[in-house]
Design a protein around this nucleic acid. Structure first.
Length: 280
DNA sequence: CACAGCTCCTGAATGC
DNA sequence: TGCATTCAGGAGCTGT
């Protein structure tokens, strides 16, 4: 599922492909692809020039030569793909953007938003400051130059809830989803059910370091597996399965100590951890 | 206000 | 074989 590194990979792909181009047409093929909080129909972007592609956590947006931005969230299965206008529509194609093309380009292509599970969405949102209004409640992610590490650590320590819940809370720190939460906790040797308020600043700091390194590595791997011809602007994890130490490895030996990785369920999610390395 | 839990969705995997 | 159930989870919403 797309978390920060995957969304950043998508952002880079979009940046390479559509910066400076003009959106000629918008075709909405599924009503759920438009977020109900959208200020209006996606048609708003018709005729707009794409000036920048922004991201905070898992939220993406297209900055345009007009006051509102087009915001996107990939949800569980959302993808942006650049395809030839001739290629058949995907089964889960939700929105099609016709883009102005260079007369010299060999193939005419279009941008498609595809989403099997329809947890992803697009929206028109006010944009005047740093991030669109729809994204304004989302905390800065750990790669944001203005990320306030000391303050975030202090905030974690006020939370009377399990550390994993806190790590997934996009209002505390954005970008981390279930996979990188499990991987970060494994690296930092923290039990997912440890109370956030019971952890030392040093421990939470090491968790943030773990999250940074896990996601940086995923970004590098996702970036390298990324096709130079942008046909691969997908939301799929670029993180190879071999790189995962805990997530999805129930019953397999912990790469650090050999004990079997356990899986528990809470907060409507699976949590994978090593019962030996990660103690409450 | 803080926090827990429910809900949306589809397709793959599993159970009987 | 076929039908029913379970599982996957981001984030907003509701309830306590």
């Amino acid at each position: 599922m797309p978390e920060l590194p995957e969304v950043e990979t998508v952002r880079l792909g979009l940046e390479r492909w559509c910066l400076g181009k003009k959106i000629i047409g918008v075709e909405v093929l599924h009503p759920r692809a438009t977020n109900p909080r959208s200020l209006g129909a996606l048609d708003y972007v018709q005729g707009a020039k794409i000036e920048n592609i922004g991201r905070r956590g898992k939220f993406l947006w297209f900055e345009l030569d007009r006051p509102l931005a087009l915001v996107a969230h990939l949800g569980m299965s959302g993808q942006f793909r650049v395809h030839s206008i001739k290629s058949a529509d995907e089964k889960h194609l939700r929105t099609r953007f016709t883009i102005s093309h260079n007369i010299l380009a060999r193939k005419r292509q279009e941008l498609r938003f595809i989403d099997q599970r329809t947890f992803g969405w697009l929206a028109i949102s006010e944009f005047s400051g740093e991030v669109p209004e729809l994204v304004s409640g989302i905390a800065r992610d750990i790669f944001d130059p203005n990320f306030e590490r000391v303050e975030v650590i202090a905030k974690f320590r006020t939370k009377k809830t399990e550390i994993k819940r806190a790590l997934l809370d996009q209002n505390l720190m954005s970008g981390v989803g279930n996979i990188y939460a499990d991987e970060s906790l494994w690296r930092a040797k923290i039990h997912p059910e440890s109370l956030a308020c019971g952890l030392s600043s040093r421990k939470i700091n090491s968790l943030l370091n773990a999250a940074t390194s896990v996601m940086s590595q995923a970004l590098v791997e996702g970036g390298t597996s990324f096709d130079s011809l942008y046909t691969n602007v997908t939301g799929e994890s670029g993180y190879s399965e071999q790189s995962l130490s805990a997530y999805g490895r129930e019953g397999e030996p912990c790469p650090r100590c050999g004990r079997q990785i356990r899986r528990i369920r809470f907060a409507n999610r699976s949590s994978h951890f090593c019962p030996n390395c990660q103690r409450k």
